[in-house]
Design a protein around this nucleic acid. Structure first.
Length: 527
RNA sequence: GGGCGCGUAGCUCAAUUGGCAGAGCAACUGACUCUUAAUCAGUAGGUUGAAGGUUCGAUUCCUUCCGCGCUCACCA
């Protein structure tokens, strides 16, 4: 028998003894008068004399996170909503029966405490307990109280334990929730309505990525998990929802990394009768508001640097390439250098000669090469909020072209902390142009680009009914949370990030220990 | 997928050149009616991720596998 199975059995025995004392093992409810944070907020300013003069009776529920037992008395800390309140148990005050229960409690148990507030000799606000109510047993031992849980694998696999032990983790997800609330409030206030569009799509469109495939049995049809809601949201603008947004998951069948999780949360919004500049301003305002709502200010810490969300710069993609052109690559490019396949190739060769690692495919469109050039030399400099605008048409199959430069589109992206966090454009609403763009993408697909966009006939039909001019945007919620919480891996802002399945305890394993599986906790702790 | 690194008690970590596998916390027993990383005395807890190899002897060296982290490539 392994140690924690031993602890598990010991605690089950304690649970039986608790039942024998007349307390249900798994009671239905507890009528509390205050939460722990409420007590701390309301009474932290009161002195021992104040509390003696006007006695405050309370009933509080929480999880026991520390126990200090001293003969016929003892102290413990009750944790609720990430905050802790001490309570004092004295045999004289709680009675023999209550004291028996007290001795059967373990770290991690949920209990209710009835009593009155007082201050200990050392001045800590505490509950003088008069009655304990058992609420739920922790059968598995919590991690060590001082170092807590630090093993990253265990933190992600057993996030519930991580959340109990690490208040800063809890804080990250509270901020995430506040951020999403803030976006909803902002877009609602601007007359947008929130909608939900299909997660399972017959054609995975609206972005450049490889999808997950699934299957519906009754219809006997293959479906894809969406890589973006874009094409459905734009169908809704055709239908007369002039301002729509959706906050939900996208799924992309690609590698994992510090900025990438296969499922991630995106805010997408579409606004009729405006263009890329209009939606750019809306997005910037929404993000500035979210930063204020989450942090209370306009500056955040990102590792060694401070990000100033009140100070944005805007550069075209070409300007950014010029501005961050490596010295070793010689004279900075001029506008005409971006115009032809050959001149773009020359730029790539100069940059490579300067020691920059950059792949080059002679068969790909020049616009795609330019985008690669931008990512290779400019992206790493974009730490402060920066809007890069005017993207090549070749990589923007859903954006309107610039009227005077058809090789370039009215598209922009926001970069912060070297990460792309938003992508918006003037939405292409010409069905014939859209068909030609899809056809160009199909050629890319034939060339071997699995991520190139597919033809979507129904989407073109929808555009053919007339889609109003519109600006649209997608905002990467996870990455924005990373920036606002100084989290340097996306896994720290996703409650249950994708991990390999953990090895299960097999029957052979349990037979070897001579134990039945009935009570064996089936997790890594016992394997 | 490539490169680098890690895996020792429930948790956090030690173990000299290859020479008896340890500590703190958690747990168990006992003492203690204002402690707060409570204290004091004692007890128990290990197939050192797995399999194989070298060796008189492997946590340590070698091979393979499993898991995790970092990083590069592709993607947001």
């Amino acid at each position: 028998m392994s140690l924690d199975e031993n602890i598990y059995e010991i605690r089950r025995e304690k649970l039986k003894k608790i039942e024998a004392l007349g307390q249900p093992a798994y009671p239905r409810k507890y009528n509390f008068s205050h939460t722990v944070p409420q007590i701390l907020a309301a009474h932290s300013g009161e002195t021992a004399e104040d509390l003696e003069k006007a006695r405050v009776n309370v009933r509080v529920a929480g999880r026991i996170m520390a126990i200090r037992l001293m003969g016929k008395a003892g102290f413990a800390h009750l944790q609720q909503d990430g905050q802790r309140l001490q309570f004092y148990v004295k045999k004289d005050a709680i009675g023999d029966h209550g004291f028996e229960l007290w001795k059967l409690l373990d770290l991690g148990d949920h209990i209710g405490v009835r009593g009155y507030l007082f201050r200990t000799r050392t001045g800590e606000l505490s509950i003088h307990a008069e009655e304990l109510t058992f609420l739920s047993k922790d059968l598995l031992p919590l991690p060590e109280k001082w170092h807590g849980l630090t093993d990253v694998e265990l933190r992600y696999r057993q996030r519930y334990v991580d959340l109990v032990m690490n208040p800063e983790v809890r804080e990250v997800f509270l901020k995430r929730s506040k951020m999403v609330q803030s976006f909803r409030r902002y877009f609602d206030s601007q007359g947008f309505i929130e909608v939900e569009t299909p997660m399972m799509q017959p054609i995975a469109g609206g972005a450049v990525a490889r999808p997950f495939k699934t299957h519906h049995n009754t219809l006997d049809m293959d479906l894809f998990l969406r890589i973006a809601p874009e094409l459905y949201l734009k169908r809704l603008t055709v239908g007369g929802f002039d301002r729509v947004y959706e906050i939900n998951r996208n799924f992309r069948n690609e590698g994992l990394g510090w900025r990438w999780n296969p499922e991630f949360t995106m805010l997408e919004a579409y606004q009729a009768y405006t263009d890329y500049l209009g939606i750019m301003n809306t997005t910037q305002a929404a993000i500035e508001q979210a930063v204020k709502d989450v942090t209370g200010g306009t500056k955040t810490t990102w590792g060694e640097v401070e990000i100033d969300w009140a100070n944005w710069r805007r550069l075209t993609m070409r300007e950014a390439i010029v501005q961050f052109w490596p010295e070793k690559a010689g004279a900075k490019p001029v506008v005409s250098d971006f115009a032809t396949h050959q001149s773009v190739k020359d730029l790539v060769m100069r940059v490579r000669a300067a020691g920059v690692n950059l792949a080059y495919d002679a068969n790909e469109p020049a616009g795609k090469t330019i985008a690669g050039l931008f990512e290779a030399i400019a992206e790493e400099h974009l730490v402060q909020p920066t809007i890069i605008y005017e993207f090549p048409t070749a990589i923007s199959p859903l954006s309107k072209q610039k009227p005077d430069e058809p090789d370039w589109t009215e598209r922009w992206e926001i970069y912060v902390g070297k990460m792309e966090i938003a992508n918006g454009f003037s939405e292409l609403n010409d069905p014939e142009d859209q068909r030609q763009r899809f056809e160009a993408q199909l050629k890319e697909r034939e060339r071997g680009d699995e991520e190139a966009h597919q033809m979507d006939e129904d989407y073109i039909r929808a555009l053919s009914y007339g889609m109003p001019p519109a600006g649209g945007v997608g905002v990467g919620i996870d990455r924005l949370v990373m920036l606002l919480t100084d989290s340097h891996t996306i896994r720290d802002v996703i409650l249950f990030p994708l991990l390999r399945p953990e090895k299960q305890v097999t029957k052979d394993d349990t037979e070897d220990t001579g134990k039945t599986t009935e009570s064996a906790p089936n997790n890594k702790l016992s394997s």
